[in-house]
Amino acid sequence: MATHQITLTVNGVKEHTQVSSNITLLTLLRERLGLTGTKNGCAAGECGACTVLIDGEPVNACMVLAVETDGAEIVTVEGLARDGELDALQAAFIEHTGVQCGFCTPGVLVSARALLNRSPDPDEDEIKDALRGNLCRCTGYVRIVEAVKAAARGGD
């Protein structure tokens, strides 16, 4: 089976690596680069736990081949905080108890970050629409929505 040399940027760090064709971006992140913040919940693009940004757009990392990300810029949950400062969403999720078991949290945060990037002041329906691909079994979503609202308000 063919392998491919790829170069990508992950959370601002350039990575050169050799990948076989059938390795997903999720496997690359978790098992090669040790970035385990991105979670594997279904490997089928249904649960959203592996959501990361590729060139600013959110994707399910389980639905992307690593080889496709040659030249791409990836941001994972580990890359949301910058210069030791939490992202407004991270702070809001702490403040508003948007977290319970924490397994869906990385994917939710990345989806929400993408939302706020494209729509800084979303209404509740917009928030729900943006997060409907992120399953959470603990929170009932109430505080997730509240936290995103709060982060948006604090973000302007």
Binding site: G45, P58, N60, M63, G133
Partner: peptide, 12 residues
């Protein structure tokens, strides 16, 4: 288009 799955899935 917007009826399909979720935003992250529709990026792909």
């Amino acid at each position: 288009v917007n009826a399909v799955a979720s935003y992250p899935l529709r990026t792909r």
